[in-house]
Measured scan of single mutants.
Amino acid sequence: MQRVNMIMAESPGLITICLLGYLLSAECTVFLDHENANKILNRPKRYNSGKLEEFVQGNLERECMEEKCSFEEAREVFENTERTTEFWKQYVDGDQCESNPCLNGGSCKDDINSYECWCPFGFEGKNCELDVTCNIKNGRCEQFCKNSADNKVVCSCTEGYRLAENQKSCEPAVPFPCGRVSVSQTSKLTRAETVFPDVDYVNSTEAETILDNITQSTQSFNDFTRVVGGEDAKPGQFPWQVVLNGKVDAFCGGSIVNEKWIVTAAHCVETGVKITVVAGEHNIEETEHTEQKRNVIRIIPHHNYNAAINKYNHDIALLELDEPLVLNSYVTPICIADKEYTNIFLKFGSGYVSGWGRVFHKGRSALVLQYLRVPLVDRATCLRSTKFTIYNNMFCAGFHEGGRDSCQGDSGGPHVTEVEGTSFLTGIISWGEECAMKGKYGIYTKVSRYVNWIKEKTKLT
């Protein structure tokens, strides 16, 4: 034993070699072989497995989906700052455009905790909710729209109204504003409101030439003092309507412009014939205590009207009353817009006519005020429907199939267009061939041609 100890002390290297040989010859039971080890760690190889990531292109799944990435790591994937920024906006807080917040056709661009709407022409605001041009839906104005110097929408209202708090709607500024039905039992019968379409306001006024200088022999019209197929109006439903009495009662109609003036057809009036105007009328054979009678003290036909040349060209006249009318729910003026808007309103496509005229061709006159909704007829169809001249200051309205029309005794009465609950004068009943005849239409004086003249002559002093 002493000898062994001496050998170990003198030859430590020998001992180490012996131990190493023993270990190498022993069977290893701690580690699995290569094949079995792979069965336990069965993990798919990654895209760049075996390579240094710093030297390969980034992978979106590896960089940002398996674990949260930084902007720089995302930049490695896209290799483009702009594309990385677009991805980053949604990656950080989701897609803010998912709810489609942009209105009126706006395009949404996502941002971090926010979004941006790219608005089409005519709109602005956070969600493109603000109209900035009158060309689109009248700028959301209830009545009139004008573009300011910086191309912003400025709404306005006709006389007797003021802008509401929203700067879009119009509200009454006087007790009985024009064009409004205020009798409670008839307010439910107000005709369907007309909503502004998209309009090209630059070209809204037709490029028409008034044929002022045409000389033409007097034409022989049949029954051209021209509501057939209409309905009984309720008291106060058309408070701007008046009836004219002269040699015979209810020979023509008219509309209240203001307390002192009536507008009617020029062919209705004769110099030297006494005319009485009755406002607030409903049943011409009954006294309903809503009527107001006034005498006409002055007749002003349009300066281009000449019955000797043509009885229905420039067929418009103004009547001055001896005493002002007292405005109330049964006696209310009709609204008159400017030339541009009167023309736009007419193009809405349908209007209402009213009167006490004959209820059928050569038949009896109506006792109760009649009204009828009539569609506008395109000019080409209008011209083809008659052998008589249709001037540019006239328009056609009615039904091709016949059966409904204005008729004798309705002449001078109103053709009105309702705009968001307020009625505007767009025409004056003038003439036609018979009444409600198939293929024939009622012919009306186009008020847009005469609004400046009306307003100039009827100013209240």
Rank of each mutant, 00 (worst) to 15 (best):
V4L: 13
M6I: 05
I7T: 09
I7P: 12
A9W: 13
L19Q: 01
Y22N: 03
L24Q: 01
F31R: 15
F31S: 15
F31L: 14
L32N: 10
D33H: 08
H34E: 05
E35A: 10
K39V: 04
I40N: 15
R43A: 13
R43P: 09
K45R: 12
N48A: 13
Q57G: 13
E61N: 07
M65W: 06
E67W: 03
S70K: 15
R75L: 06
E79C: 10
E79K: 13
N80K: 14
E82T: 15
E82H: 14
T84Y: 04
F87C: 06
W88K: 08
W88M: 15
W88R: 15
Y91K: 15
Y91Q: 15
V92P: 09
S99N: 14
N100P: 06
G105Y: 09
G105C: 05
S107Y: 06
I112K: 15
Y115E: 14
F121K: 09
F121A: 08
F121C: 05
G122N: 09
G125Y: 02
N127Q: 11
T133V: 05
C134W: 02
I136P: 14
E142F: 03
Y161R: 03
C170A: 00
V174G: 05
F176C: 03
C178E: 01
S187K: 04
L189S: 08
T190H: 09
R191W: 06
R191K: 12
V195N: 08
F196D: 11
I210E: 12
I210Y: 04
L211R: 04
Q216T: 08
Q219W: 11
F221K: 12
T225Y: 10
R226V: 10
V228K: 11
G230P: 12
E231G: 09
E231I: 11
D232W: 10
K234C: 04
K234M: 04
W240T: 00
Q241F: 14
V242T: 03
G246F: 06
K247D: 11
K247R: 11
V248F: 04
V248W: 08
I256Y: 00
T264C: 06
H267R: 05
H267L: 02
H267V: 02
V269K: 01
V269H: 02
T271R: 05
V273N: 12
K274M: 04
V277T: 02
A279H: 00
A279P: 00
G280A: 03
E281C: 10
E281H: 10
I284P: 07
E286L: 10
T287C: 08
R294W: 01
V296M: 02
I297W: 03
I297R: 07
H302N: 05
N304P: 02
I309H: 08
N310M: 06
N310D: 14
K311I: 11
A317T: 02
A317H: 00
A317M: 03
E323G: 04
E323L: 14
Y330D: 05
T332N: 04
T332Q: 04
C335Y: 00
N343S: 13
N343V: 03
F345N: 02
K347T: 14
S350V: 13
S350P: 11
S350R: 14
G351P: 02
A366H: 12
Q370Y: 04
V374P: 09
V374E: 02
L376I: 14
R379D: 15
A380G: 14
T381V: 15
C382R: 03
F388C: 14
F388L: 10
T389F: 09
Y391R: 10
N393H: 13
C396K: 02
H400V: 15
D405K: 14
G409Q: 14
D410C: 14
S411H: 12
I428T: 02
I428V: 08
S430I: 14
S430E: 04
S430P: 04
G432R: 05
E433S: 11
E433G: 07
M437P: 13
G442V: 15
G442T: 15
I443C: 11
I443L: 10
I443Q: 07
I443V: 06
T445E: 02
R449F: 15
Y450T: 01
N452H: 10
I454Y: 01
E456P: 02
L460H: 09
T461A: 13
